[in-house]
Write a protein that binds this DNA or RNA. Structure first.
Length: 333
DNA sequence: AAAGTACTCAACCGCTCTGAA
DNA sequence: CTTCAGAGCGGTTGAGTACTT
């Protein structure tokens, strides 16, 4: 979207803790950017605090660093929405690393941790809203947006969510991670540790079903990754991928999903046959893009369930276990 | 056309980590 | 070993914009 440059911000300046100097906050001006860039040209992307101590800018070192990392760094994809491939990478890496945005960002050329974080946050909000909202009526009615494709397919997302929720729900009863076949069948995602963040992980495990397709991971983009450690650890090769197909079928609890319902999903009849095929761009949630039939899918088992039936399951999730021991060599791959 | 809602994004805050003194 | 300062990271906020009703 086009934001008004230098739009009004909520803060402008304040006295710093030490008392005297005014610390400027809020949006950066072009002049400030130029000063910051000049500092980086001469000193490199470091010594942030010296920018203020030398009187170059009335900004904190943290603020300067953030501005550089998020906006001024070269080769950033500013204002460019996440591609389907990027979305898929984020989803899969989030499932594996958790909310390690800086680390995840090292796999995405031109993306910052803030970008990834915002992307994920937006996605989570949407998830939460969908989970709480009543199921939209399944119909063949066209989208209300006058033929324009919505930014995401509500119907597909909803179906996806309830599928994921079913997995979650079963897990809450069985107390066995998530009782999720797929989780156990995805070694490269280490889903055995899926309970680390139950809510996210359950869904991520589901979404990573798409991730059975090969990832083309990028090495740290430009050496200016926001986390130098992460940059060093960024692999130059994809995950150690098992041969396809990975799974028998993802975590559909039979209690909730009968074969007919499964067959009604885009996955079962359209995705499975292509597991041996070359990588395919599949936007997250967006099976409708790759599989048009999904919009016309028949009602599945979840459509007949009360929309809030999974809320309790979410509330009953066990606390996350302690994080798995980190590898001694710092290389998860 | 207006109002309400959802989404995006920049930037701040607080915490943790790390290295130097 | 302890302390401290700087850097980095994740969470959060809120303004502006887009979309929907």
């Amino acid at each position: 979207m086009a934001r008004a440059p230098g739009g009004v911000r909520r803060r402008s300046a304040r006295r710093d803790a030490a008392g005297g100097e005014v610390v400027r906050k809020g949006p950066w001006t072009a002049e400030e950017d130029e000063v910051l860039l000049q500092h980086v040209r001469t000193h490199g992307p470091k010594d942030w605090s010296s920018i203020r101590s030398k009187g170059l800018l009335p900004r904190t070192g943290k603020s300067c660093r953030l501005r550089w990392v998020n906006k001024l760094r070269p080769n950033l994809k500013s204002g460019c929405k996440f591609s389907a491939e990027e979305e898929r990478v984020v989803i899969e890496l989030q499932a594996q690393f958790g909310n390690k945005w800086a680390r995840i960002a090292t796999y995405l050329q031109g993306r910052t941790d803030n970008d990834v974080k915002n992307f994920w946050s937006t996605r989570q909000k949407r998830l939460a809203r969908l989970l709480r909202a009543p199921l939209p009526a399944r119909s063949n009615k066209q989208s209300s947006s006058k033929g324009k494709a919505p930014s995401s397919s509500l119907e597909s997302e909803t179906a996806t969510f309830h599928q994921g929720s079913a997995c979650l729900d079963q897990a809450s009863f069985e107390g066995n991670s998530f009782g999720c076949q797929y989780c156990e069948a995805a070694p490269f995602m280490e889903y055995q540790n899926v309970a680390r963040a139950p809510y996210d992980q359950a869904f991520s495990g589901f979404f990573a079903f798409e991730g059975a397709l090969p990832l083309q991971l990028l090495p740290a983009a430009d050496g200016e990754a926001s986390s130098s450690n992460a940059a060093q650890m960024a692999p130059t090769l994809p995950f150690d991928q098992p041969p396809y197909p990975l799974i028998d079928f993802p975590c559909w609890p039979e209690r909730y999903v009968d074969a007919g319902a499964i067959n009604g999903l885009a996955y079962s009849q359209e995705l499975l046959p292509m597991v041996q095929s070359p990588p395919m761009m599949m936007p997250f949630f967006g099976m409708e893009c790759a599989h048009g039939a999904v919009k016309d899918e028949p009602r599945n088992a979840f459509d007949d369930l009360p929309p809030n039936m999974f809320d309790d399951a979410l509330d009953q999730l066990p606390p996350p276990p302690p994080p798995p021991p980190s590898p001694s060599n710092g290389d998860e791959f």
